[in-house]
Write a protein that binds this DNA or RNA. Structure first.
Lengths: 218, 218
DNA sequence: ACTGAGTTCGAACGAACGTTCGAATGAGTC
DNA sequence: GACTCATTCGAACGTTCGTTCGAACTCAGT
């Protein structure tokens, strides 16, 4: 019944080509709910968080939430898709016009860590709940993830070709992701360095690890 | 009532000093249940797995399970504690008699990856559900984790002193854990190398990353 | 003041959750 | 066979889960 109605929830889908939708009241409120839901998912996990938790956190009634999305699973999907899309978009902008392979990898790492640390909750939900979705939802998120992965593979292959290096790109990329994504389990802003400094240290370590004796240049 | 009874569930606690308890029928059965539960937790997550799932997987009735442990949370605790204790024990044995700092780090990595890959389910539960426990349970697991972490810090500090290196031990250790623990998200036994080969590649990469220009020796 | 679409909510739905209890089995000793 | 523990189970407990429904509210345009 509701699924076939003309309720405005269905209008939240972005139009093709419109990179900036006309932030309506609906979209704004949805954004707030997504933000609160992200915090709750981060603290209690997707399965551990109840719709009543989300209701309490966002200050909206339980039933009211369902005006903005069709199901709890779809809510997680919206969060993951938005977060992942944003990080890929930012990366592409930052990579434009930079040609040196090593520098491009440094940018990749900095972009990832910067976004990770300023959106820790969202990124934890992204890293931690990556197999909580099913079927269609899972496929769509997996597609964005694969694109992001492929970009990184491309950067490393550039470096290999440019410097004539030999190593397993797959293991290098996945190790790099491991280093970066693990951060949500330990980073404490009062003790640990900020994104710039962390990115510098991890880049240094990773690049040295991947280059056979060749000096890294900064 | 049950908590104060003389039910044999209370006898499963190890006696002090007995490193090998007298594998009774009870302990055997408990072990089987833990193994099945580990698989289920791995597939569906701790919160996502229901006691009825565990019942189905272990072939024992719902009520029957409670003869072997007091609660679902305690079950997760038993799994985590056993897994973590085992990996630390094995590491200590392997490190005995090896004095070279670099070689000790290679052993650490190999031990971790070997155990990780041959007990993937258990290690995923350990990595993924590390904040699912509360209060007392969480503290006890955290204590073992801290010991394991400190061992690794010690190994890296040895290396730094022996070679006169300079880097942040904390970031190096946590990056190494990230590389290694991330494996559960990607390792495919039909495509990827085995533990020996992976450990060799990761050790090579990590050690080169941490040593300033100094050659690694194998 | 009235309309109509957009937004919110209280109350309830059936299902699934973790856990308990008392009775029924099983195995080993007299 | 009878006694004793250890083990297992069906059936139910009260609670919480995700979701739905219809009624109410808000507010811009008349």
């Amino acid at each position: 019944m509701v699924a076939t109605s003309t309720t405005s929830a269905r209008l939240s889908v972005r139009q093709r080509g419109n990179s900036r939708p006309p932030a309506t009241r609906f979209d704004k409120r949805l954004g707030q709910i997504l933000a609160h839901a992200t915090d709750v998912f981060c603290k209690k996990g997707y399965e551990g968080a109840s719709m009543r938790d989300l209701s309490r956190a966002s200050g909206m009634s339980l039933a009211g939430l369902y005006y903005y999305f069709q199901s709890k699973e779809r809510l997680l999907f919206l969060i993951q898709k938005h977060t992942f899309t944003t990080i890929v978009e930012r990366l592409k902008v930052r990579l434009e016009g930079v040609n040196d392979a090593e520098q491009r990898i440094r940018i990749f790492i900095l972009n990832h860590l910067e976004y990770f640390l300023s959106n820790q909750a969202a990124m934890k939900v992204l890293s931690h709940e990556d197999d909580a979705l099913k079927n269609g939802f899972a496929l769509e998120v997996a597609a964005i993830k694969r694109e992001y992965y492929r970009i990184c593979v491309g950067l490393l292959d550039e470096l290999k070709r440019e410097r004539g290096l030999q190593f397993s790109t797959r293991i290098a990329v996945l190790s790099l992701f491991g280093m970066m994504n693990w951060i949500y389990t330990w980073h404490n802003p009062r003790v640990d360095a900020d994104a710039d400094e962390l990115a510098r240290q991890m880049s240094e370590m990773f690049l040295r690890g991947v280059m056979n004796g060749a000096r890294t240049r900064r």
